[in-house]
Each structure stands twice: as C-alpha cells, then as structure tokens.
Design a protein around this nucleic acid. Sequence first.
DNA 1: TACTCGTGGCT
DNA 2: TAGCCAAGAGT
Length: 342
Amino acid sequence: MPSVPADVPAIRSALLDWYDAHARALAWRHGPGSTARPDPYRVWLSEVMLQQTTTPHATPYFLAFTARWPTVSDLAAAEDADVMAAWAGLGYYARARNLLACARAVAGEHEGVFPDTEAALLALPGVGAYTAAAVASIAFDRAANVVDGNVERVMARLCAVETPLPAAKPELKSLAASLVGDHRPGDWAQALMDLGATVCRPGKPLCEVCPLTAWCAGFRTGAPERYPLKTKKADRPRRSGVAWVLRDDLGRVALVRRPDKGLLGGMLGLPTSDWSAAPDAAPPVVAEWREAGAIEHVFTHFALTLSVQAAEGEGDFVWVEPQEALKALPTVFRKALERGLA
DNA sequence: TACTCGTGGCT
DNA sequence: TAGCCAAGAGT
C-alpha cells in the first residue's frame, strides 16, 4: 500500500497556484477563486453531461439545455420527449431519464432548491459518488473527495500505485482523500481534474510543466505514463441486424419509442430486427423493401452492423419529418436513417 | 463484483 | 485501423 503523499500542504498549495494561473475557461465555470457562488443547477447539469463524456462534446448540449431550461424547475416541467430529443447524440441515455427524475425530485421534494450536502445529493437519481462530491464541493464549498478518472490517474502516478484498475479504486480514493482540505474545496477538485485532463494526461504526460513533479513517485520512476496499471479488457463482440426506413406518402419516417430500460432506453428509434438476427428478418410491415446499404456503429461493449432497407408504406408508428427525426435520434439510428434516405 | 450503457476524437 | 479514452451510475 503506497504511503500517503508527504508534505500535503505544499502539494495543495502548488496545485492551487497552478490552477489560478492555468484554469480552463469552460461554459459552466466561474474563474478560479471567484467569489460568485456557482448555480447548483448548472454545476449539476454540467457534471451529469460530463460523465464519461468529453468537454467539447458536452459543451453545446450544456448551452442548449441552459438556454431552453434556465432553472431546475423549468427542466422539471419539461416534456419527457423534448428532453430525450435534446439529449440525442450525447449518449448514455439513462442519464437523460435520471436527469428528469432528479429535476422533478428537486422541484417536488426540495422546493426547487438543490440540497447542499453530499449525502442528500447522493440520494438523488443519477447522482453517484462522484457527482455528489463534485456538486457539494463546487457549488456548496464542501470539503468532499471528488474522484473521477482524472483524479485516479493523478493519484496512481503521484504515488506509483502498482495495483491495476479497477481493483485499485479504493486505494486511489483513499489517497485522494488524504489531500482534501477545507481551503477552496471546489477549486481543489477542479484543479485536480484539470491537471489530469491537460498535464497528467493518459498518454504523453507533460511532466515538464507539472507543478507536482517534486513529489511525484511516478515521475521518479522515469515512466509515469505506465500508471495507472489496468487489467486487460475482454474483446468486443460483433452483432448485426436490419433497420427499416419506412416513409408514408407525406415523406415522414416511421419511428418507434424504445422501452425505458436497456440500450438506448426511452429514445426514439427506427424499427429494427433483433441485433443477432440474420439479414432476412421479417420487416415490420409488408412493403416493397429495397436494400439501401449498411452502417457500422460501435457501442461500449459490442460493435454493430445494421443492414438498411427502405420502402414506402403505412402502419402504427410515430411518424416524424425526416429533418426532425435526424435531430431526435441516437447516432446509430441517425446513421441508418441517413443511409435509408440517400 | 462485474456487467450494462454511447459517442467521437485521438493515436 | 482498432483500440483507448472521457468530470460514472445503476443494477
């Protein structure tokens, strides 16, 4: 078990100084050391959007959501379909369902005001250990232990942790906890994450500009990029199926609302076969189907080839104008629809 | 605990 | 190009 970093006050001071000079300007962030109290709604919304999602990808969604729903009460009053459509393309759609559930819990059970403790935040839908700690520290100035993938990597390098992920998670969290303090908790959390994102990067870390090299055991090994160690992941299987692009005499596209649970849950989608079926699976309605090609899409745990067939016809579907459908669909269906319309 | 759950950019 | 990776949560 690696020891707690020596000289905690010096490490904290060095990183906070670095943050004051190098903090990134982000849509949801006030300047470092700002006395303006961040809006908990915006902090929470940004943290949910940033779960497993890059800043460039999340930023336009954050701007669109805050423009359309300026407060948590506005979001709580939104239609489910509008929120799911606005989330389309961002991925991990359970986040959008939980986002609405959380907004409605805050509006209905907390009088529209976000709770200001880590424990109370943790009880909200879609708010886990990371997000509860992040909102508590950034929005409410609580000394919470904010641990994401960046922080895990920084700790693994700083302390040269030889245990591979994911088994090392408790150890890395404990190391991060030893550095948390009451001074500028929100800035501390963001400084650690910014350092991981821009300096202590997964590949080719920029140790020459890092404020922590004096204390970094990984740096002293000469190969800091080796950390954190990881156990090998299983190979990604390949699946296939058929997607059907059916258009009525007005040119509208036939869509289906997917069940709330499971892949792409709660989202609109094209009618498809099972994604293990042979390409001759039975179409949803009788029509003169023609081959329109195929699309590839890679999910987290499998790769998918969808053969696309197109036809004109009628049936019991959600009929949507093609331009609207393209905006409201998850990427895999957007790709298939574009192929079917071509 | 281990698996499910998206997407796009980078190497 | 095929894998890696990103401010994780729910089950």
